[in-house]
Structure formats: structure tokens, C-alpha cells
Computed example of a mutant assay.
Amino acid sequence: MRRTIVDLLQRNAEHAEAFRSRFDDVQESQRPDAVTVCCSDSRVLQDHVWGNDEPGKLFTCGNIGNRVVQRTEAGEAVSGDVLYPLEHTGTDVAVVVGHTGCGAVTATYEALTDGVSEPAGIEHCLDLLKPHLEAGVEALPDDVDRAGAINRLVEYNVDRQIELLRDSDDVPEGVDVVGAVYDFQDVYSGSRGEVHVVNVNGETGVEALREAHPEVEDRIERLWEY
């Protein structure tokens, strides 16, 4: 067997030993505090981002491009991965987390600007991003470099996913939706690995957000207020 699998199983044995008694209260049901939608990029450690090691606390969804929608015969709909905890476990907070240097956003940008294509499975995922990012690509500042364009589109994509959640009749009333960007490239002003809030219930203005949420004002930051 590949050494990678052996190493994974050894680490799982350590996990099982440490977590042996931590499932007692959640064996039969779950009531997570929030559902998080992160990019499945290997550099984004969904639970570790929040310092979480408590089973049942977070309902974590991951896909390339931190998308909240899937395509159905009736058109786009909020993905069941995201909707399930909002509908069935009493979860009333949804957090969409993009990240600096996102490969899915980069691939979408290249597809929209240079016509670059991908294998069918990846292309399907990008096709769910393209219509929501196209206007953002067109609105990019003329003087921004490629890396700057990508990271601005990361924010733009988070905004569009928040918009999709807010516009959906399937998302229960009273759910708070928050957009954020995880930075491991020193793009924002905080420490590497920090999450920066960029959108709360559709509000994207930095000053307005800081005034409304003074308890986290130092974590509210955007690269692009378009």
C-alpha cells in the first residue's frame, strides 16, 4: 500500500484515540452553529481555520470555488450540501469563505479572458462560476496586475455566492450569511492565515460593516469596493 495511505491511517489512529469520548453528545443528532462553504483547496484547512476540534460544531462543505449552487433540471438551486443544515438542524449562520490565489477563480478568469478550457468535470464546475464572475472580470481596474485581478475576483465571487443565498426562497428567513476571505499570501493587512470579513448579509461597504460590527472591525477588510 502507498505510504501516503499508511501515514493517513496512522494519523487517524491518533485522532481516534484523542476523540474517543468527544462524540458522546452528538452520536444521534447534530445542531451545528454554522455551515461553512470553503474552497476544497488543500491549503484551506476548514476546521483549523476556526480553531475547531469539536464534533458537531461546524457543518463543513467544500468544492472548488466555494460555490453555494448546483444545477438542476429547473435551473440553479442552492446546493443540498449547504441547504441541509439550514433546513434540518436549526443552523442559522452560513459562512462563505474564499481564499487568496484561488485556482478555481483563476481558471474561470482565464476561461473568460483567454478561452482556456478544462476537462469536462472541471469545466462543469467553472460553468457554475462563469455567469456570476463575468461582470466582475469586465469591471476590473485597468491598472491591476494578474494576481491583483484574481484576488479581487475572489472577493467578487464570495459576494455573488452570498447574493445567491440571500435571493433563494429555499434559505429560511433569519439566516445570517457572511462572506470572508482566508489569506495565506499576505495580501491583506493582517497576519498570514487570518480570515477577513468582506460581506455581511449583502453589505460590502467596509466603513458600513465596521460601524455595524465594531466587535470585529479589525477583521473587516476588502481589496475592492466596486
Rank of each mutant, 00 (worst) to 15 (best):
K130L: 12
K130M: 12
H132R: 13
L133G: 04
L133C: 03
L133T: 13
E134Q: 14
E134A: 15
E134V: 12
A135S: 15
A135C: 04
G136L: 07
G136V: 09
V137T: 09
V137E: 04
V137I: 12
E138K: 14
E138M: 03
A139V: 01
A139L: 02
L140H: 03
L140R: 00
L140C: 04
L140S: 05
L140Q: 05
D142N: 11
D142T: 13
D142C: 01
D142W: 00
D143E: 15
V144F: 13
A147S: 12
A147N: 14
G148S: 05
G148W: 06
G148E: 06
A149R: 11
A149C: 07
I150P: 07
I150R: 06
N151T: 04
N151Y: 09
L153Q: 06
E155N: 07
E155T: 10
E155Y: 07
E155S: 10
E155Q: 14
Y156N: 03
N157R: 02
N157M: 06
N157G: 07
D159I: 00
R160C: 03
R160S: 13
R160L: 00
I162Q: 06
E163P: 01
L164P: 00
L164I: 02
L164E: 04
L165R: 00
D167H: 07
D167Q: 14
D167F: 00
S168G: 11
D169M: 04
D169C: 06
D170A: 15
D170Y: 00
D170H: 02
D170P: 00
V171H: 11
V171E: 08
V171S: 12
V171L: 11
E173A: 15
E173I: 01
G174Y: 10
V175R: 06
V177T: 13
V178M: 08
G179V: 08
G179T: 05
G179H: 03
V181G: 11
V181N: 05
Y182T: 05
Y182Q: 08
D183G: 08
D183K: 06
F184S: 09
F184L: 13
V187H: 01
V187P: 02
Y188A: 06
Y188P: 02
S189N: 05
G190H: 10
G190C: 02
G190S: 11
S191C: 02
S191L: 07
S191A: 13
